[in-house]
Design a protein around this nucleic acid. Structure first.
Lengths: 98, 98
DNA sequence: CTTTAAGTTCGACATTCCTCGAACCATTTC
DNA sequence: GAAATGGTTCGAGGAATGTCGAACTTAAAG
């Protein structure tokens, strides 16, 4: 199960990113991810069932906000900061700064 | 029909703003509004029917992105830049800069 | 090899949302 | 006053989304 679906940098669409971040739960995930740097799905679940978390991570992945690397049975998630900042300078930073 | 529904500055919620801007049509409206400063609904319709435009303007209004002042039969729309920038510094600017 | 842990996928249900026509309301204009 | 203008509101249809349980997959551990 190697390659998670990550859009290439140039295919990242602003409205999709904004949509992904318009969900409180997902924004919370992104904030904590921004603070921790890297985290597994399990570390960020907040009482929500695994299937819900998986859904949110997929949304974040498909829109290009999060990168997921498989490490054994765990998935290591991190923000695609550089790519996002090149494509939409300042957007993620401004949102995370709130 | 005086008072359009505008949330006070402190009630503006980031996720709602992001959601409002996650629609291509609405983001286009906001961009053109940012460029023109003030515009009536009719000026920004882009082939879409009036009811659709009205819907989008209401979404933008309710989340605090747009302010609408009634002037006769026309509605003058503008961005709530200062309020948004106080509440979420840099967010709107970064998005509009893309 | 069996069990366990970490996530994903599938399916169902409820909710929300977008789109657009039709009817409706003020305000200005003739 | 009547017609025209600029928007809003209502309602319906259809698409997308979030939530969550259940079953499944893969890798590590025993």
């Amino acid at each position: 199960m190697g390659a998670m679906q990550h859009p290439p940098e140039e295919d990242i669409v602003l409205t999709r990113v904004l949509y992904a971040l318009s969900d409180e739960g997902r924004l919370a995930i992104v904030r904590r991810l921004g603070a921790k740097g890297v985290a597994t799905c399990a570390e960020l679940e907040d009482g929500r069932p695994k299937s819900s978390m998986s859904h949110h991570f997929r949304v974040l992945r498909q829109c290009g906000v999060v990168r997921t690397e498989v490490a054994g049975t765990s998935h290591l998630n991190s923000l695609r900061r550089e790519e996002l900042d090149r494509r939409f300078p300042g957007v993620l930073a401004a949102i995370l700064a709130v």
